[in-house]
Every structure is written in structure tokens, then in C-alpha cells.
């Protein structure tokens, strides 16, 4: 992965407008968070292979970045994104890494389903 270049990302998002894409969306502070530090809440969520079609997709911020996708009946939102790549399968992979390189958020968009 490389550091996000918002102009490049915006161009890629524009390409996916109006066509169904599969989504992996995730945020986590780790299953061990509350074990390592008392009083911390282990919190996280992920959803994999839900399909949506967005009409407008934008990247915002000065880094870390936010991405918002507007669909006809709702929204997708991701915050804290730092790195990205378009992989060999033409999937857009975004990740937010903390200062130790651990993944805190991920957003991935693909024309074909992700492996389960």
C-alpha cells in the first residue's frame, strides 16, 4: 500500500459510480483492547460482500482521509484512511493504519465478490 493521493483516489471513485460494487468495510481497535488497557472498550465492526451502487463518491480531508459514498437510499462512511492501492484484481483497497502500522479501518471496493 502507499500513502493516499486524494486526486488519484477521486479519479478511481468516479470510475465506479453507478455500477454495483462489493464492499468490505471494517473498523476495529482489536479484541485485546480491553484486556491490555482496563477501561478501554473493545469495539469493532465489519461487513464483507455487501453490494451497493453509489451515485456520488468523494474523498475528503487532508490526511488521514474520509470517504463517503451516497447511494439512492443511504450512505457509506469511512474515516481515518491513510493508505491505499489498486490491486492486481483492480480492487480499490483503503486502510487506516495507526502509528504502529496496525489496521484501524478498512474500506474495499470490488466489481467481483471478495473471497469469503
Amino acid at each position: 500500500m502507499k500513502a493516499i493521493n486524494p486526486a488519484h483516489v477521486q479519479a478511481e471513485l468516479d470510475q465506479l459510480r453507478g455500477e454495483p460494487v462489493y464492499v468490505h468495510l471494517e473498523t476495529t481497535n482489536g479484541a485485546y483492547a480491553s484486556h491490555r488497557e482496563k477501561g478501554t472498550l473493545s469495539a469493532g465492526a465489519f461487513i464483507r460482500n455487501v453490494q451497493l451502487t453509489f451515485e456520488i463518491g468523494k474523498i475528503a480531508g487532508n490526511g488521514p482521509y474520509r470517504i463517503g459514498l451516497e447511494t439512492d437510499i443511504g450512505w457509506l462512511y469511512a474515516e481515518g484512511l491513510t493508505d491505499w492501492e489498486k490491486d492486481e484484481e483492480n480492487r480499490l483497497l483503503f486502510a487506516g493504519h495507526d502509528h504502529e502500522g496496525r489496521l484501524a479501518a478498512a474500506l474495499e471496493l470490488s466489481r467481483s465478490p471478495f473471497p469469503k
Partner: peptide
């Protein structure tokens, strides 16, 4: 470290 993987 450094980051060498992504979710996929």
C-alpha cells in the same frame, strides 16, 4: 512492520 500486508 513496516506494513507489508493488506486485508486481502
Amino acid at each position: 512492520r513496516p506494513v507489508m500486508a493488506n486485508r486481502e
